[in-house]
């Protein structure tokens, strides 16, 4: 910005533009690095999970395709939520989403190669499936990394803008879905999820349901975390329970159903054992959903 006054207007403007472009490029590269960090942070546990490797090959191709397609509007929605909302436009959102997806695919390919899990001579279906499946959580991580790994500069100012004290209801539900999906993607592929559901009796399941709801509600309202939502004094507690926590839990359950179905955990199971698995997976989903309301 330090432009001396004795230059003429056009040179000053040119300097300004070059400076802006350099800043933009710099911001973009920092964004990429943060995205890469986020992809690593969020996706490494899954890249090091045996069931995820197997799913790359065994997962039904149509269900994998659906998951990959569902990821697109999801990334777009996250980009919209955590980007600069005031200046948000479709082009930027789409660009951010695609860059995140690209980072997800590349980082997954690199890490899986590093672990010796993918090699040049393996079946193409297996290779593509493994990378594609890992790219989903990695791309979500890349987007979250961009917003959360920052040092609290301009992003935070925008987020805490007093002019926008209340996020939209739809956005709130969407972010809960993202949080639930994220933790579910971590846990749903593992054999432990269904094993727990086999070990549980219906009584355990009932307790799990109540615990999930309590944790969700407590996480956001009772425990005053940073970013926690406080109730106005004249709002009865049950208002927030019905309007936010219950829909949030229902969303977590639906996401559980989707994940378990995607990974073929329902195949051959009747309603009751399937429901038990959904309730088990609903617990991490509920925690993820509640955390998303706080963090994002």
């Amino acid at each position: 910005m330090g432009i001396s006054l004795n230059r003429d207007e056009t040179t000053a403007a040119g300097d300004q533009q070059r400076q802006d472009e350099a800043n933009d490029l710099n911001d973009f590269l920092i964004g990429l690095a943060r995205g890469l960090g986020g992809a690593l942070l969020f996706a490494l546990p899954m890249q090091m999970t045996m069931e995820m490797w197997a799913l790359g090959f065994t997962m039904d191709r149509w269900r994998l395709l659906l998951l990959l397609l569902v990821t697109l509007p999801l990334l777009f929605g996250i980009a919209r939520r955590i980007g600069f909302e005031k200046t948000f436009n479709w082009r930027d959102g789409l660009r951010d989403a695609m860059v995140a997806y690209g980072i997800g695919i590349l980082s997954s390919a690199v890490l899986l190669s590093l672990f010796g899990l993918i090699t040049g001579d393996m079946a193409r279906e297996d290779l593509v499936g493994k990378i594609a499946l890992q790219a989903v959580p990695a791309s979500i991580g890349a987007l979250l990394g961009r917003s959360q790994l920052g040092n609290g500069g301009e992003d935070d100012q925008d987020e805490r803008d007093p002019a926008q004290p209340r996020t939209g209801y739809g956005t709130e539900l969407f972010m809960m879905a993202v949080g639930a999906l994220f933790l579910n993607l971590n846990t749903a592929p593992t054999e432990e999820m269904i094993l727990i559901s086999y070990l549980m009796t219906p009584w355990h399941a009932l307790l799990t349901i109540f615990l999930s709801i309590a944790v969700m509600h407590g996480f956001v309202y009772a425990v005053s975390f940073k970013g926690g939502h406080e109730l106005s004094d004249d709002v009865p507690r049950w208002h927030a329970l019905i309007r936010f926590t219950m829909p949030g839990y229902a969303i977590a359950l639906l996401i559980s159903v989707y994940c378990l179905w995607s990974f073929g955990r329902f195949d051959g199971a009747q309603a009751m054992p399937a429901l038990m698995a959904v309730i088990v997976l609903g617990l991490p989903g509920a925690v993820g959903a509640a955390a998303a309301r706080l963090i994002l």
Binding site: T167, Y169, G227, H229, V235, H239, A240, I242, R243, A250
Partner: peptide, 19 residues
């Protein structure tokens, strides 16, 4: 953080009740 207001759109109640 954001506060939950008393007056909510009817759709919030509809969603809440369905859930």
């Amino acid at each position: 953080g954001p506060t939950t207001e008393t007056r909510a759109h009817w759709i919030e109640w509809a969603t809440g009740l369905t859930a």
